[in-house]
Design a protein around this nucleic acid. Structure first.
Lengths: 189, 189
DNA sequence: ATGTTTGCCTAAGAGAATTAGGCAAGTGTT
DNA sequence: AACACTTGCCTAATTCTCTTAGGCAAACAT
């Protein structure tokens, strides 16, 4: 009985790849076992079960995404930071649709607290410090940016913008441009 | 063997209710059969299977949502129309989270073509006629509104805005106000 | 070499999806 | 009212995934 060398770490990484290939919904302990050419029960030494696997993939994706966002933000501010940050989300979702879907998994409170969710929120706030917003407005803006990025990326991934002109990239640029302007302008009172 | 009177129609409606109660992901032909106190195999006279059930629930939800949106739009224009239309999405998602999730199901092209997706797009364009946008800008704006509404509603449903001030309603109003202003303003060049 | 840990196994049982084939409750004809 | 006919719901069987329990041997420490 040759040992394959399973670890939770390797399983989660492989699960993330599997998600990108077949969709996060299709990630199953059975499929993962097949991928390692191992019996299903063997995974239960490393994972609590199916739900645990999904949660771990989600946490992994959130970290990876936060790392990329942090890189993109380094040395940028204002409009540049906004564009770079937004691009990270969009690119990640297109490169890794399964992981992106995983990152949107609804986590239970304890998992959420241990997740990179907080980093994401802090980075968004950091970008907004480049704009001159009062406190409640900053929170509103955090929520707006989250909504636009997530919403756009979801719809694009679902194929919503693929069969009509103008192409998606143009709209993306247009939207970021308007958001930047909106945040810069003083509210009309 | 008393006949219960199953029909595709009744099954889909019950499936939609089930989705609202336990989540769209948990909607299963088995659960649906239990709900009608009937054996699972009996549903296969009315549905092609599990995937067919989910697709039908999605189409049902899209129609229902489009009907509500059309009602809300009747007799309104401009900013009022925007606010009413957006409110329909948000309220629907909060009243019927399972159906809303169903409506976001990725449909195969033929199902998508037969869906109310086109009505949704046309209504969004109708709202934008109240603003003075050139053609490409109108398409960009359709996509922006879709992204914001969907993104906001998803995040709110996932509990993203529930544990911090200011409350979600305030942000919602703030966002719609900014969108209205943005669409009204001539672009800065 | 020896004992301990532990990685992967076999076995077994439950729930979900799907297909094939059967009987009786309805429906329509005469 | 009796006829066949359609069809709604059934039983039965197969496949697949998830999960737990318990076992053997490989890796590791000494």
């Amino acid at each position: 009985m040759a040992r394959v060398g399973l670890t939770t770490e390797r399983l989660v990484r492989a699960g993330a790849e599997l998600a990108d290939e077949v969709g996060f919904d299709q990630v199953t302990v059975s499929a993962l076992a097949r991928r390692f050419d191992v019996k299903v029960a063997s995974l239960y030494s490393h994972l609590k079960g199916s739900q645990d696997l999904r949660t771990r993939i989600a946490l992994f994706a959130l970290e990876e995404l936060a790392d990329r966002a942090a890189d993109a933000l380094a040395g940028r501010a204002g409009r540049d930071a906004l564009i770079a940050f937004a691009g990270v989300y969009r690119d990640y979702a297109r490169e890794h649709p399964g992981r992106y879907a995983a990152a949107r998994l609804r986590l239970d409170p304890e998992a959420a607290a241990a997740s990179a969710g907080g980093r994401h929120a802090r980075m968004t706030r950091a970008i907004l410090r480049g704009y001159d917003l009062t406190e409640p407005d900053q929170t509103h803006a955090v929520r707006l940016l989250g909504s636009v990025f997530h919403g756009y990326v979801s719809l694009e991934l679902a194929g919503g913008f693929s069969h009509s002109a103008p192409d998606s990239q143009e709209t993306w640029t247009w939207i970021l441009d308007r958001l930047d302007t909106m945040l810069r302008d003083r509210p009309p009172a």
